[in-house]
Design a protein around this nucleic acid. Structure first.
Length: 134
DNA sequence: GCCAACGTTGGC
DNA sequence: GCCAACGTTGGC
């Protein structure tokens, strides 16, 4: 089961809003970047993703699960999206600052390609973050 | 609010 | 198909 990280500015769509959607979840629309789209297309139902607050917060705050995979973005059918539901909050936010100073995470896409809004996370990275903050 | 990094667009 | 110009993202 693959692991991912999805970013959202809390002003636009926050973890709290995602949680409020409950089991119904929310379509992850508005991705307009080919690399990010390819990652969305690779997601399968049951895959888990960290929910990261960019700009304000700059931390992983929760975990989502894919509940519907690879369908056309209703806001622009040329692009793809998937549907996520929030599964649980992190025990504590795991910040970008902390990721940067953690040797185990030095290859994270979050650090090396900070602009990519949908990115893969390795199992090792996932396990480490879950161990310290999950 | 600034600016660096990067992705996309469009003229040639 | 190259590359300069432009737009956007996101950390600081």
């Amino acid at each position: 089961m693959a692991k991912w990280l999805i970013k959202s500015e809390p002003d636009t769509w926050s973890w709290e809003q995602q949680v409020a959607k409950g089991e119904e979840g929310e379509a992850w629309t508005g991705v307009r970047n080919y690399g990010a789209r390819n990652n969305l297309r690779s997601m399968k139902i049951g895959d888990e993703a960290f929910f990261y607050h960019s700009n304000q917060g700059k931390a992983i705050v929760g975990i989502c699960e894919v509940i519907k995979e690879d369908f056309p973005d209703p806001t622009d059918e040329k692009w793809a999206c998937v549907q996520f539901k929030a599964t649980k909050a992190m025990a504590r936010p795991f910040s970008l600052d902390e990721a940067k100073i953690t040797p185990e995470l030095k290859n994270m896409v979050l650090i090396n390609n900070s602009r990519l809004s949908v990115q893969p996370v390795t199992q090792d990275e996932w396990d480490y973050i879950m161990k310290v903050a999950g």
